[in-house]
């Protein structure tokens, strides 16, 4: 009973590390972007109404 209640993995279950490595890779890309100030450029664009984007103008 107590074993059933205990959260966690069974002996035959292994952690799938692929999503974690993949997320780490994309985290690295994100940090590179931040390091070269890409968010500043994104913010600059997002603050303006993109007329062509919405089909106006």
């Amino acid at each position: 009973m107590s074993e059933n209640r205990k959260p966690g993995r069974k002996p035959d279950q292994t952690i799938d590390k692929a999503p974690l490595w993949l997320s780490l890779f994309f985290l690295a890309l994100l940090l590179i972007g931040i390091a070269i100030d890409e968010p500043g450029r994104v913010l600059e664009q997002a603050r303006q109404i993109c007329l062509s984007c919405i089909g106006v103008g």
């Binding site: 997320s23 994309f26 890309l29 994104v42």
Partner: peptide, 30 residues
């Protein structure tokens, strides 16, 4: 927007290839 402006960015010495956006999308996707 970043990909469309990549030539102008490179010309001004900024390597904005969409790292931040692809990184954020990939992190959420992963």
């Amino acid at each position: 927007q970043l990909l469309g402006g990549v030539r102008l960015a490179i010309a001004s010495g900024q390597y904005f290839f969409g790292w931040y956006i692809v990184g954020a999308m990939g992190l959420m996707g992963g």
